[in-house]
Simulated scan of single mutants.
Amino acid sequence: MFDPPDLNLPDADLTYLPAWLDRATADDWLDQLVRETPWQQPEVVLFGKRHPVPRLLAWYGDAEARYRYSGMVHQPLPWTPLLAEIRQRLVDTLGRPLNGALLNYYRDGQDSMGWHSDDERELGEDPLVVSLSLGGERRFDLRRKGHTRIAHSLMLAHGSLLVMGGQTQHHWQHQVAKTRKPCAPRLNLTFRLIRAPL
């Protein structure tokens, strides 16, 4: 794990706040969101075969905040009172608007997210991705686009906030890899600004 000053990566705008949320609030939000979210596990087609996405997910947002990724168009669920509260806290913290949130639930170490950049057209020229982590710590890896070597890794703590802005998504990819180490379930909320709705 490294501290925020070490996140001064070339061609990236990254800020990590390891204790953005107090533990009691983080515990409460985690419990409520895991229970109340209508989780889905969509399938993706790879080399002609259908595979379930290795995690559970849900997409929330303003009515117009449709979002296309992994070949699917996601219609937003309406904000719940809790998610609306979380969004407002983030908007107040960042001074930036946010109109959608992708929730990913990693049930154990075998749930994962492969290498990718959040650079879909709907996110505009300089995508803003605000990632709130709740639950078990998982390692977040970064690598330069066009490279295979992991350049930086960060343990995302319970109640932490990682903000990725500027040119980050144009030059960097990130992943949450599978792990054989025992780990508690993790909920990741990635708030975004959909600038060009579908």
Rank of each mutant, 00 (worst) to 15 (best):
1 M>S: 01
3 D>T: 06
3 D>K: 02
7 L>Y: 00
12 A>W: 01
13 D>W: 10
13 D>H: 14
14 L>W: 01
17 L>S: 05
18 P>H: 13
20 W>P: 00
21 L>T: 15
22 D>Q: 09
23 R>E: 11
27 D>G: 06
27 D>V: 13
30 L>H: 08
30 L>F: 14
30 L>A: 01
33 L>M: 04
35 R>L: 12
35 R>K: 15
36 E>Q: 14
47 F>E: 00
48 G>L: 05
48 G>N: 07
49 K>D: 11
50 R>W: 12
52 P>V: 04
53 V>I: 15
56 L>V: 06
56 L>Y: 09
57 L>I: 13
57 L>R: 12
59 W>M: 11
63 A>H: 12
65 A>Q: 08
66 R>G: 05
67 Y>T: 11
68 R>P: 05
70 S>G: 13
72 M>A: 04
73 V>R: 02
74 H>M: 08
74 H>T: 10
76 P>F: 03
76 P>E: 03
78 P>W: 08
78 P>F: 12
79 W>P: 06
80 T>P: 01
82 L>W: 08
82 L>Q: 15
84 A>K: 03
89 R>T: 08
90 L>M: 10
91 V>N: 01
92 D>M: 06
94 L>S: 06
95 G>P: 01
98 L>V: 12
101 A>E: 05
102 L>E: 03
103 L>H: 05
108 D>E: 00
110 Q>G: 01
112 S>A: 13
114 G>P: 03
115 W>T: 11
116 H>G: 12
119 D>K: 04
123 L>Q: 10
131 S>I: 10
131 S>A: 07
133 S>Q: 05
137 E>T: 15
137 E>L: 10
138 R>A: 06
139 R>H: 11
142 L>M: 13
146 G>Y: 12
147 H>W: 01
147 H>S: 14
149 R>P: 01
149 R>I: 13
149 R>K: 15
149 R>S: 15
150 I>Q: 07
151 A>L: 02
152 H>M: 09
153 S>D: 12
155 M>G: 02
155 M>C: 04
156 L>A: 01
158 H>Q: 07
159 G>C: 15
160 S>V: 10
160 S>D: 08
163 V>N: 02
163 V>M: 08
164 M>E: 03
165 G>W: 03
176 V>W: 06
179 T>H: 14
181 K>V: 14
185 P>N: 04
185 P>T: 10
186 R>Q: 09
186 R>T: 09
187 L>D: 11
188 N>T: 14
192 R>L: 12
192 R>I: 10
192 R>H: 02
193 L>K: 02
194 I>D: 00
194 I>V: 10
196 A>V: 02
196 A>W: 04
196 A>L: 05
197 P>D: 05
198 L>G: 06
